[in-house]
């Protein structure tokens, strides 16, 4: 299994390099530059700015400067947030986004698995229908709308939680963002869990377990849960990377200090440094998560391990 992991890590290096290269050149091919704003700058000022950010050098020179920097852990300057380097911005925002994503992940998977199980065990009874109802809402209501609804209900009308904003160390400020972030993922997990559980409960070995006199709970705990989890686990990787990269709306709406929001704002501002920095970082996170899921899968399903 160790050599399997090692091979996967090695395989990630060319992927990373290709991604950086593609991203770098695609970004530069996009029309408009970082200094094209509402007003045209005088040409000498434009020249000064271009020189300041090395944009006056040839594209290939810039590319090698950039890749050299990345290898040393330096993602270069940010053109739209000049008081910080890209590395500094990522260092400030990443821990927060990771924390938010991980908490939402834990909430989403535990609630989702539990809800899916309850649903499956009570198939076509009222607990099942109520879970399906919430799942549907979680899947179809886009998060910016959900955020607005919850802000109005929990913040403005009932005054239970702060509407938005961030206060270092304050938990109430994080409840709504986590709720909104985890709901759609919890819904997906619940749906997957429900489906696979129903399937497992109908298999021969579960019937055998019941026939030999095991109680319903023991059947669930010993024989049903582990195999029913398999499709859920294979979804966990994408779910986690979705939560980590999908926080941009929530971060923007609640003005949280994560990195998700840079994704869009930097791309629109042609802030090459931040776009590349976030892309490289997220790529790393996603590669890592996929690796973890593969290893976890091998643990849960012996068939994968021995293949």
């Amino acid at each position: 299994m160790l050599s399997y992991a090692f091979r996967r890590v090695l395989g990630a290096i060319p992927i990373a390099l290709i991604a950086i290269t593609a991203c770098f050149f695609i970004l530069r091919a996009a029309p408009g530059g970082p200094f094209d704003g509402e007003r045209a700058l005088p040409p000498q000022i434009m020249d000064n700015l271009r020189a300041y950010y090395n944009l006056d050098k040839s594209l290939f020179e810039q590319y090698f400067i950039y890749v050299g920097g990345v290898l040393r852990g330096d993602f270069g300057p940010s053109m739209s947030y000049q008081d910080f380097s890209v590395s500094e911005l990522l260092a400030i925002g990443l821990p927060f986004s990771l924390m938010l994503g991980l908490v939402a992940f834990v909430v989403a998977t535990s609630v989702g698995i539990l809800a899916g199980m309850i649903s499956a065990v009570n198939q076509n009874k009222w607990p099942d229908f109520s879970v399906i109802f919430v799942v549907m809402i979680g899947l179809i209501v886009p998060n910016f709308l959900m955020a607005n609804l919850l802000q109005l209900l929990l913040g403005v009308y009932w005054n239970w939680l702060p509407v938005r904003g961030y206060v270092p160390g304050s938990i109430p400020h994080l409840i709504m963002p986590i709720l909104i972030l985890s709901l759609p993922q919890a819904a997906r997990v619940a749906r997957l869990m429900r489906g696979s559980m129903i399937e497992v409960l109908g298999t021969n070995y579960v019937r055998t377990a019941r026939a030999k006199g095991l109680g319903a709970r023991l059947v669930l705990a010993r024989h049903a849960i582990k195999p029913a989890l398999l499709p859920v686990v294979s979804y966990l990787g994408p779910a986690l990377s979705g939560l980590l990269t999908g926080s941009l709306v929530v971060e923007q709406v609640f003005a949280l200090p994560g990195i998700g929001k840079y994704f869009i704002s930097a791309a629109l501002a042609r802030d090459y440094g931040i776009v590349l920095g976030t892309t490289v970082l997220y790529m790393g996170v996603i590669l890592l998560l996929n690796l973890i899921v593969d290893i976890l899968y091998a643990y849960l399903d012996p068939k994968v391990r021995y293949r």
Binding site: A147, N148, Q151, V156, P162, R164, Q252, A255, K261
Partner: peptide, 18 residues
């Protein structure tokens, strides 16, 4: 000086007195 790029959320916060 709050970042209020999302004007709808900021408006909700204003109505709530934040």
């Amino acid at each position: 000086y709050d970042n209020t790029e999302d004007t709808t959320a900021a408006f909700n916060a204003y109505i709530a007195g934040e």
